[in-house]
């Protein structure tokens, strides 16, 4: 059974259709890449799944339950983790505290005013940090981390919620090429191990073809192709968009 099922998702801004009738599904452990040129509707699509935008039409089902139009918070509670294009972590906390914070939220222990945070969910937090290779930096301030490490921290935070679905918006944006491969291989491994479905958008085609199981191609808000790396590479419509029009590709 698919973790995420998206059906007939549509959104217009001021009469201009940003996304029209997009449907797809993601299975457990599967990595689905959402690609397309700038303005294709990737972010709109993504934000409708994540709850930042309300769709005009269509539905989003998480493990069979509708989460269409819920708030980001409710969607997170339903079992969706996410990372942001520009990393979003808690700068005034240490690396470990960032993960503890997510764990406290997951265990519904936020509205507690007395017992200190220090020492809570330590094993679980350290285990998550170990999984993303940050255990040695647990005590450091988030603000002093290298960018690549921040991305991995975000991943650990997103996983703290034991999500069924992971949304990653441009996960490798701003990273050096070597780091990109490292991060996505890590994601690949975690997705497989934990059976998490991953939906991600990405500019770097090497990364996309390297780690994704399946690829969706959007253009002008419409789904124009779907398939594995080879079929997408061979798809003339995709080639037309990426090569024929000379539109941007690759990282920036």
């Amino acid at each position: 059974m698919s973790v995420l099922v998206v059906q007939g998702l549509s959104k217009s801004f001021g009469g201009v259709q940003a996304v029209g009738d997009v449907s797809f599904a993601v299975s457990p452990g599967e990595m689905l890449a959402l690609i397309g040129p700038n303005g294709a509707g990737k972010s709109t699509c993504f934000n409708m799944v994540g709850g930042q935008l309300n769709p005009d039409k269509g539905s989003v089902l998480l493990e069979g339950k509708a989460i269409t139009g819920l708030s980001p918070r409710a969607i997170s509670r339903a079992g969706v983790g996410r990372t942001f294009q520009i990393t979003a972590t808690f700068g005034s906390m240490t690396v470990r505290e960032n993960v503890q914070m997510a764990l406290l939220s997951h265990h519904r222990e936020i509205w507690q005013f007395w017992r200190p945070v220090a020492g809570r969910h330590l094993t679980e937090a350290d285990a998550l940090l170990a999984q993303v290779g940050l255990e040695a930096q647990a005590e450091r301030a988030t603000g002093v981390l290298a960018y690549g490490d921040l991305k991995r921290l975000e991943l650990a935070i997103a996983l703290a919620n034991r999500p069924r679905l992971l949304l990653m918006d441009e996960p490798t944006a701003g990273m050096a090429p070597v780091e990109r491969v490292g991060l996505m291989k890590l994601t690949r491994r975690l997705a497989t191990e934990r059976g998490v479905a991953v939906l991600f958008t990405e500019h770097d085609m090497d990364v996309v073809f390297d780690v994704s199981d399946r690829i969706l191609v959007l253009n002008r808000g419409v789904l124009i192709a779907e398939g594995d790396g080879d079929s997408i590479r061979a798809n003339p419509a995709v080639r037309e968009i990426y090569l024929g029009t000379g539109a941007t590709s690759g990282g920036h």
Binding site: G50, S76, G81, F84, T89, A160
Partner: peptide, 11 residues
Amino acid sequence: DSAARARAIGL
């Protein structure tokens, strides 16, 4: 620190 991140972990 980050309202977007806070919401994304369910706060």
